[in-house]
C-alpha cells in the first residue's frame, strides 16, 4: 500500500504551485485557475485522510467542497466579466478602484 505521506506530499506540491500562481499571476482568469488548483489539493488531502482512516465524512466534505468551488468559480467569473465590460481588461494590477 502506498504510504499516506505520498498523497500528502503530492497535495502540498499542487498547493504550492497554486500558491505560486496566486502570488505571481496578473491575469484574473489565471488567478481563478490557481485557486482551483489549491482547492483540488485540499480535496486530495480530504479524500486521502478519509480513505486511510476509514471514515466517510472526509468524502462528504469533499463533495461539499467541490460544490462550493463551483459556486466560487461562477462568482469569480461573473466579477471578471463585469470588470471586463467596464474596463476592457482583466489585469488585476489595474483593477484598483477599491484601493486607497
Amino acid at each position: 500500500m502506498i504510504p499516506l505521506t505520498y498523497y500528502l506530499i503530492l497535495s502540498s506540491i499542487v498547493f504550492t504551485i497554486g500558491l505560486y500562481g496566486i502570488m505571481s499571476q496578473r491575469n484574473g482568469v489565471r488567478l481563478l485557475m490557481s485557486v482551483e488548483l489549491m482547492l483540488n489539493s485540499a480535496n486530495i488531502n480530504l479524500v486521502a485522510f478519509s480513505s486511510y482512516n476509514d471514515d466517510m465524512s472526509g468524502q462528504v466534505f469533499t463533495l461539499f467542497s467541490i460544490a462550493l468551488a463551483a459556486a466560487e468559480a461562477i462568482i469569480g467569473f461573473a466579477i471578471l466579466l463585469s470588470i471586463f465590460r467596464m474596463r476592457d481588461m482583466i489585469n488585476i494590477d489595474d483593477i484598483n478602484i477599491l484601493r486607497w
Binding site: 484574473g28 482568469v29 481563478l32 468559480a73 467569473f77 471578471l80 466579466l81 471586463f84 476592457d88 482583466i90
Partner: peptide, 11 residues
C-alpha cells in the same frame, strides 16, 4: 466555465 471565461475576456 473557465474556458468560457477565457474566451469572453480575451481582447
Amino acid at each position: 466555465l473557465i474556458l468560457f471565461a477565457v474566451m469572453l475576456t480575451t481582447q
